[in-house]
Amino acid sequence: MLEIKGIWKTFNAGTVNEKQALRGVDLTLKEGDFCTVIGGNGAGKSTMLNAVAGAWAVDEGSISIGGADVTHLPEHKRAAYIGRVFQDPMMGTAPSMQIIENLALAARRGQRRGLRWGITREEKTRYQDMLQKLDLGLEDRLTSKVGLLSGGQRQALTLLMASLKKPRLLLLDEHTAALDPKTAAKVLALSDKIVAESGLTTMMVTHNMKDAIQHGNRLIMMYDGKIVIDVSGEEKKKLTVPQLLELFSKVSGSDEADDKLLLS
C-alpha cells in the first residue's frame, strides 16, 4: 500500500542550522497495516509523515501509495489518497466555518470542486448520523462554527473528516498529544474504531510507548532520521516498554534512551 524507498531530507542545507531530518528511510506498509511510530524529539517521525503527505519535496528517494508514485505530486493532489489528523487541534479544521461545511469539504477530498452546491440535503442527515455515533453531542450543532469546539471535539471531528472519504492511507501525527489524558484516551479509542471499521492503512506517530505497543499491528522506532526498530505481529503483541527501551539502547548504542524517550 505505502512504499517509501530511501528518502532523504535536509533542512536549511548549507547553513549553521542544517539538519538532516531523514537519512535514508525505507518502509513498506501492507494494505490494512496499522503502524505506530515512536522516537525521541527530532528523530524524524513527523518529518517522515510530512514527507508522505507532501508538505515539501524530498531530496532523494521515492514514495508510492497503492502503486501510484506520488513523489512529485503537490500536497493537495496527494490528499486524494491521504487522510490526516495533526498534532495541533487548530490545524485540521477551518474554525470560521460550520461543522457541516467542514465535513462537506472533507467529503470532496480528491474530487474536482465545481459550481455544484457545497452541501447537499442528503449529506445533512448523513453527517448527523455520523456525529451521533461520535457521541460528542455535536449532532445538533451542525451549523455551529468549529472554532467554538474544544480541542478534543475538534480532533474527533478531524478524525471523522479524514475518514469520511475512505483514504488509502491515514496519517495520525501525535493527534492526541495536545489533549488531556482522558480526552486523549477517548480520541485514541475512536481512532482505533474508525481504523478497524474501514480497515484503513494507518501510520500513527506517538510519544507514548504504551500507546504505541497497545495499538496497531506494527511498531517502528526512529532515531536520528532512520528507522532503527521494526517489530510486527506476535512479536509486537508481546512487547513491553522495558523491552522496547532495551532494544533501543542496543540499536542506538547509547543509554540516553531514558532521557529521550521516557519524556512521554
Binding site: A94, S96, L105, G114
Partner: peptide, 28 residues
C-alpha cells in the same frame, strides 16, 4: 450563491485554514 458552491467553500477554507484546505485536496 458562489460562496455556497463547492468551489466557493474551497475558497473560504483556503482563507480560514490553508493547512486544512491542502489536506482536504484544495489547491490553495
Amino acid at each position: 450563491a458562489f460562496f455556497g458552491t463547492e468551489l466557493g467553500a474551497a475558497l473560504r477554507a483556503t482563507g480560514a485554514n490553508p493547512n486544512m484546505a491542502r489536506a482536504q485536496g484544495i489547491n490553495t
